[in-house]
Design a protein around this nucleic acid. Structure first.
Lengths: 356, 356
DNA sequence: CTGTTAGCGCCTTCAT
DNA sequence: ATGAAGGCGCTAACAG
């Protein structure tokens, strides 16, 4: 490992001068600076980040916490998708990421913020924090910048980042309306915060068109099983809806599987639209039309939020990232005509994406 | 931030003694040690990892590289699933993980090993390294312990960790045989190393039973599209196979979608078995029977490998982790009877798992 | 057993 | 414009 001391010695100057030259300070002669930079390159000098952060007190490192009490892991926890955006943003701004997860309880014994303190990370991004978390207080009063993604809580000194759930639901509902659906039901997930927002959008949309009906509301718990149960319930109605807005893809797929089992065709007999755009949602038969969360954008927004706060001290309360509609094959016009999306669709004008 | 200096001062002892006491060295009086530990706790002292690693030259930190030239990200890159096991193992052994990914090229300008050196990480786990990687040489000659997961290369000083692909394929083929299939084709992916192994298992299995046929081999590239193309090819055969072993789930699902479009029913007319158990493979219709990679076990094995090498200096060349068969609904007996798995199935005796 | 001394590699006053 | 010196927080000899 070559150090500034080495380059100082080979040039017969002092380490202080080398440090200044390398850090672009203006109190060093132009000619000397050039020589210093040259030999630094020749010697393949690399500043030691450890030593630097010991004196600067900043680590250029972020803590990322993937909270996952159910132990779903990368495989089944949507929150991991935000990591793409976080990683991309961190790389762009030259920060390192240290990753924590509480799938087991090993590190759950300490508050996330405590972990941050002991690791000397500059800021934290926490995915999936829940309202009853034992360290909630700590997080909301953290002394470092914190962004919360995919969370049911907000407030405190943290920045709340999420999809614009109501806008996203509106996208789906407008699409169904545009296809000609008037009898649009919802499978909601009222126990969760985003679930409630998505439901509210449905309720407002239905009410605005005079189409609000209590019996077009079913409750699920985000699982495919709850979707299958709801399919049976909807199928047994005398006045069955022609389209269903599910508050999550998993439930939407459950609806599809449930209808399939009952001989109800999707999309010919009933259109289904989901929310999230989970991995491989395009591979279930029929490929799912859904509201895609901009996971990349959310991750990046969270990262930018904490780093901006670090740089400028200015904190954002809340960042809502626009989702977009992904039109695939689980929705059709009520008659059973193939799905289509002509110019002028209200959804299209607000960020629709069409995939084969 | 309270330092050892603080606790030394409040106790009227020297920092050296405090350091020793806190690090469990035996050359310090029991009574003094107790008092030191007590006041350390009272002062809520936290050792500064930065300062420590500057002097010890060890960071208790691992570098994890998710290589992903296609930019698939968490959403579509199977390799991310290994992170669960890596995280779990790291938490258990009290190591931190710093995560890198090359979805963009920002950090791709430097060798992964270089990045490790500059970050002073103790060891590295690299997921998805390819044979034509520009830094291959560097990786194979790394001065720190390295584990390679889900990779086409091996050799050098790195530990190679992967699923036992041939054993996994055999599991699938034995299952098909047990169901009564004699005309078993394969959709292979010969351009990849695991793909070749899976194919070899098919070829050996077929040959051993006198059932090897060139026209039961089709080539794909791991995409659903290649599966759909293969479905068309198989469907047009005069002597169509009754079962197909696909070298990946994505291709298996492509086969299903392709057959669906052609009116060939799965599993009534043809059974499909995949490999990997990608997320939501249980949600495609019909739920996919497949060989599940033990992603958790692989991640943990890789982590243990590098840490063991760090501790003991003993390196493993290769670690093969046993996959298991997951029986779902895409396979049936040739006649079209519902799929079943009675006691005594050869697959069952070697780690089958049945899911609804 | 305990204290003293020297750094680890870098940055930053403060002199010169 | 350059150099010398001190220190970030900790560990590791080496003395006593």
């Amino acid at each position: 490992m070559v150090t500034i001391k080495d380059i100082a010695r080979t040039l017969g100057v002092s380490v202080g001068t080398v440090s200044k030259a390398l850090n672009g300070r203006d109190d060093v002669g132009d000619e000397l600076r050039a020589r210093i930079i040259d030999t630094a390159r020749e010697l393949r000098y690399e500043p030691d980040p450890i030593a630097r952060r010991l004196v600067t007190k900043r680590s250029r490192t972020l803590g990322v916490f993937m909270l996952d009490r159910q132990g779903f892991g990368v495989r089944r926890n949507f929150g991991w998708l935000f990591l793409d955006g976080i990683l991309r943003g961190a790389a762009a701004r030259d920060y390192d990421l240290v990753l924590f997860s509480n799938t087991d309880d090993t590190r759950y014994e300490r508050s996330y913020i405590d972990i941050c303190r002991s690791r000397r990370v500059d800021a934290a991004i926490i995915v999936g924090l829940r309202g009853d978390d034992r360290y909630l207080e700590d997080v909301l009063n953290a002394p470092i910048p914190v962004a919360l993604i995919d969370t049911e809580v907000s407030g405190g000194t943290a920045t709340f980042v999420s999809s614009d759930n109501k806008a996203g639901a509106a996208l789906a509902l407008e699409h169904l309306a545009f296809l000609g659906h008037e009898k649009v039901a919802t499978l909601r997930a009222p126990f969760s915060y985003p679930g409630r927002l998505r439901y509210e959008a449905w309720a407002e949309f239905a009410a605005a068109r005079g189409r609000y009906r209590d019996d077009y509301i079913r409750d699920g718990d985000f699982t495919p099983e709850s979707g299958m149960a709801a399919a049976a319930a909807f199928a047994s109605m005398k006045d069955m809806p022609t389209a269903i807005f599910a508050a999550s893809d998993l439930m939407a797929i459950g609806l599809i599987r449930g209808f399939e089992r009952l001989g109800v065709r999707v999309p010919e007999d009933v259109s289904i639209v989901g929310f999230d755009d989970i991995p491989n949602a395009d591979l279930v038969g029929p490929a799912l039309t859904t509201v895609a969360q901009d996971t990349l954008g959310i991750g990046q927004a969270a990262l930018d939020a904490v780093l901006d706060e670090l740089d400028s001290g200015s904190r954002r309360e809340e960042i809502l990232v626009a989702p977009r509609l992904v039109v695939r094959r689980s929705c059709a016009a009520p008659g059973g005509a193939p799905d289509f999306l002509p110019e002028g669709s209200p959804a299209a004008s607000r960020g629709v994406r069409r995939t084969p």
